[in-house]
Structures are given as C-alpha cells and as structure tokens.
Nucleic acid binder design. Structure first.
Lengths: 141, 141
DNA sequence: GTTAACTGATATTATTATAGTATCAGTTAC
DNA sequence: GTAACTGATACTATAATAATATCAGTTAAC
C-alpha cells in the first residue's frame, strides 16, 4: 500500500543528481554508485525518463545522461505516470459496469474526490522545489 | 498502486449490507451472494471486523453477523487499518536511517504532508455517510 | 441425537506487481 | 582495438494481494 514505488523514488534521486550540473553527462554507473541504486535497475529507469524527454543520453565512452527539462516543470506526478500509470486509489474505478452494490459507487465518488486532491498536491511537488528545500536544509546545518 | 484493497472494498460492502437491518444476523453466505464476494474470502474479512469489534457474530444454525458499532463512527481509515495497516504513501518512511541522498528526505516531508491530508479526508468518510449518500442517490432515481 | 446451517481458525495456493539481474548488440573517445 | 558507455530486452526473485480449502466446534430444529 504505497503510492510511490522504487522506480519513482530512484528516478527522483537520479534527476536530482543530474541537476548538480545541468550541462554534464553523468553515467548510469556514477549515479548508481552515488545514490546507491542497483545499476541495472537504474538503467531501466533512465530509459523511462528518456522516453518522456526528461533526460537526454549520449552513447559511448564518456557518455551518460543529462537533464533535458526545467526541473521546475518536472512534477512527481509526471514521474509516477511514467512508471506507475495515473494515480488511482482504488481498483473499483476500473470496473466498467456499475458495482453490484450502489454503496460501492458512492464510495467511488468519495475516493475520486480524494484522488483529485492527491493529484493536485503531487503536481505541486517538482524536482525544482525539492532541490530548493534541500538547499534550505543544507544552509540550516 | 492503490490505496484500497479488495479486503477494504469488500468489508465496506459487507458492513453496508449489515446496516440494512442492524438487529438481524446475516450469514456470510447470504452477504457473499448478495454482494458478489467470494465466500471464503469474505469470511476472513468478517473475522477481521470481529477482532476490531465492528461486528458481532453468532455461531450455529441461524447464526451470522450483526453490526456492533455506530456506522457514523466507522471510518474507512479504521477498515484500512485492519487490513492494510496505517496509510503510508511511500516505503521511504520505513527507512530508519537518513536516506543516502538528502533530497529523498525533503521528498519524505512532502509526502508526509500529503499523507496527513489523505488520512484526514479518509477519516471523514464513514459507513454512515456512505449510506446517506446512497439514500440520496436512490431518492434521485 | 442426528443433521443441516452456521462460525472459528488456519493452512495452502494462485495471481499480480514490484524489484532486481543478466545479456548482447551497438556507439564513441582515446 | 579496447574500455566505457547506452539501447533493448529477457529473465528471475520477492512480496503483497486475492482466493480457496479444510477441519473442528456450535446451534437450532426436527
């Protein structure tokens, strides 16, 4: 029962890493080591980020990945969407027919309401704002 | 990626069924049939509801289950808690140590915020209010 | 007092999602 | 040419969820 999977978690970390220098290419191996992410798993994740054009890659020796979108425009819903599909709090919503019992449908309405709320909140959480929070935290130490 | 499992979904339906007549004992077989819930699965769920004293049971022929708590005081967080533990949107929160990367911890803070929001909203959704919604819906038809 | 309709408790299996690993082909810089 | 990379994809492992099966004990009614 969780809304964020490792895919999303690792993707966020990888993106933050890339933001350390937006012009540099970081190799998957580098990122994996620094962020303690299983290497092959990270490579899959990076492929996902490429498809959505959040990062760009360079093949060959000295190659790697570079951020390709304004961090302030990368929200965690975008990342969730890549790896987990749209946010849905209950299976119930997938059922095409009306539920056997109507009470389930009134539940669905309530859940939909909360779902929209979560979506809205998550949209507001961007890589950019996470980095800002991080900066603040660092200054405080 | 869902917050409500079948356990919770079925439990809500079973409780609504029991509310049809708060003094009557309904057998698991009856409920299963009417709500189209796999019988043995439902029995497990009802055992869970008994442990938390949401329902009471009567053994033997003519026995079954009866609601034992004011529906207005049964919130879906209570039910989620029985079958899924506390609401947690990310695994990250389980890690005792600080994350390798601090950015993860700032993420944690944001997720915690949304988590509290979801909890608050879910607390407001009770069996009682779902039944009320259902009544309204019926009257409209 | 036997039988049918029940619950209590628990073990087992199936299914699916998530997480992680392995491999091979192709690219690039030196 | 070779070491350090990515692209693509197949495979395996683990865990959570969903569902099934079984047996012992209880109760009501005949």
């Amino acid at each position: 029962m969780k809304l964020l999977t490792k895919h999303t978690d690792y993707a966020i970390r990888a993106l933050s890493e890339l933001c350390e220098n937006k012009n540099k290419f970081f190799s998957a191996r580098q990122i994996a080591k620094r962020q303690r992410i299983p290497y092959q798993f990270l490579r899959q994740i990076l492929q996902g980020l490429i498809k959505d054009k959040l990062v760009i890659s360079k093949e060959g020796s000295g190659g790697g990945f570079r951020i390709d979108k304004d961090p302030n425009l990368i929200s965690i819903v975008d990342i969730i969407a890549i790896f987990q599909g749209n946010i849905q709090l209950s299976d119930c919503m997938f059922r095409k027919k009306l539920c056997a019992n109507r009470s389930n449908c009134v539940l669905k309405k309530q859940i939909n309401r909360v779902e929209k709320l979560v979506n809205k909140e998550f949209k507001g959480i961007t890589i950019g704002c996470l980095l800002k929070d991080l900066e603040k935290q660092r200054r405080r130490l």
